[in-house]
């Protein structure tokens, strides 16, 4: 079976990104999942072991200069592609790894498919599926020939491979000398979040401008915690500073497709709907009976979120007991 190279993201702390198992699982639908771990010596061995644990049949490892942005990883990828001649190179659509595949595509002049929601193989080769214009359209594409590079939307494929014995293959990387940006510093987000990540979450509770303040956003978080849900927001809530930008759901934020999506004080502008309308069940609470969110809600409540939500939370807590 031909190889699929999976670029795994090693976080600054040394752990593999949460997207890793889904990537390896998606890769296995097309070929033999071979991980690439490009990391400094201090974290490499642990990351390689973690990759095998998640189902990588082999783990290519390379040293990288962690002070430089993207280019060292691209150099490692180019060496890995040269060695394996894969049908597919897969990475997460997260900004760090999609930049790496973007540069690789331009360097090797290879076709690139972005934000794919699935990859498969047919008689002619690798095909990729996309969900376009906020999920209103599905599109399938393929390379005319040769290796396809693809970025996978986080959270759309769940990891289910069994662990493999670690087969580590260090690769020799010749630095390209292409100019790169310098990483001056990295400050980790301190919020010790026990909540699920927004991308790929099974349930999402989002708050909008209607929540009214950063303090009152705690109510959104409280409901999220009762449901084991991730916290999302509209752009208006982000702009008002109730929540960090990483919580934004929508066209220019995160696209989510959870089983349950609850919108609180969100009118449902077309750009917000573009990021959540493929959810399984949509619930909306809004004071305004004309709010467009009701056009797509399976259960809509015209009411004040500050009376509905506390009652909902106690009813759910009572049910749990």
């Amino acid at each position: 079976m031909s190889a699929v190279i999976v670029l795994l993201e090693v976080l600054p702390g040394g752990a593999l990104s949460a997207t890793s198992s889904g990537l390896l699982t998606a890769a296995a639908r097309v070929g033999e999942p071979v991980a690439l771990v490009a990391a400094p010596a201090a974290t490499r061995a642990a990351a390689a072991a973690a990759a095998a644990e998640l189902g990588a049949v082999r783990v290519l490892t390379a040293d990288v200069d962690v002070d430089r942005l993207t280019v060292p990883v691209v150099d490692a990828l180019a060496a890995a592609v040269d060695r394996e001649r894969p049908d597919l190179v897969l990475a997460s659509h997260a900004v760090e790894t999609r930049d790496a595949l973007a540069r690789l595509a331009a360097r090797l002049r290879l076709p690139l498919a972005t934000d794919v929601v699935g990859v498969a193989r047919d008689e002619l080769g690798v095909v990729a599926q996309h969900s376009a214009l906020g999920g209103a359209f599905t599109v399938e594409g393929a390379p005319t020939f040769g290796t396809l590079l693809a970025t996978l939307r986080p959270g759309v494929v769940e990891g289910d491979l069994s662990a493999q014995p670690l087969v580590e293959q260090p690769i020799e990387v010749v630095a390209s000398g292409v100019p790169s940006a310098r990483i001056e510093s990295f400050s980790e987000t301190t919020a010790p979040s026990s909540r699920p990540e927004l991308r790929g979450a099974k349930a999402v509770v989002s708050g909008g401008r209607g929540v009214g303040s950063r303090e009152d956003f705690a109510l959104v978080e409280q409901l999220a915690d009762v449901l084991g849900a991730a916290v999302g927001a509209s752009r208006a809530a982000v702009d008002a500073g109730y929540v960090p930008a990483s919580a934004q759901v929508g066209q220019t934020g995160v696209s989510v497709s959870p089983r349950l999506y609850i919108a609180l004080g969100i009118s449902g502008a077309i750009q917000h709907r573009a990021g959540m309308q493929t959810a399984g069940t949509i619930v909306a609470v809004d004071k305004n009976p004309e709010a467009p969110i009701f056009e797509i809600a399976d259960f809509g409540i015209v009411g004040d979120l500050f009376t509905v939500v506390p009652q909902l939370i106690s009813a759910l807590e009572a049910h749990k007991k």
């Binding site: 002049r109 290879l110 076709p111 690139l112 498919a113 095909v127 999920g135 209103a136 359209f137 599905t138 599109v139 399938e140 594409g141 393929a142 390379p143 005319t144 020939f145 040769g146 396809l148 309308q277 493929t278 949509i282 009976p289 009701f294 056009e295 797509i296 809600a297 399976d298 259960f299 809509g300 409540i301 015209v302």
Partner: peptide, 19 residues
């Protein structure tokens, strides 16, 4: 090589439920 479209399909629009 180029990346080409093979197929496009439209999803049925969502319907409103209970309000």
């Amino acid at each position: 090589p180029r990346y080409i479209m093979l197929a496009v399909a439209e999803r049925p629009p969502r319907q409103a439920g209970t309000r």
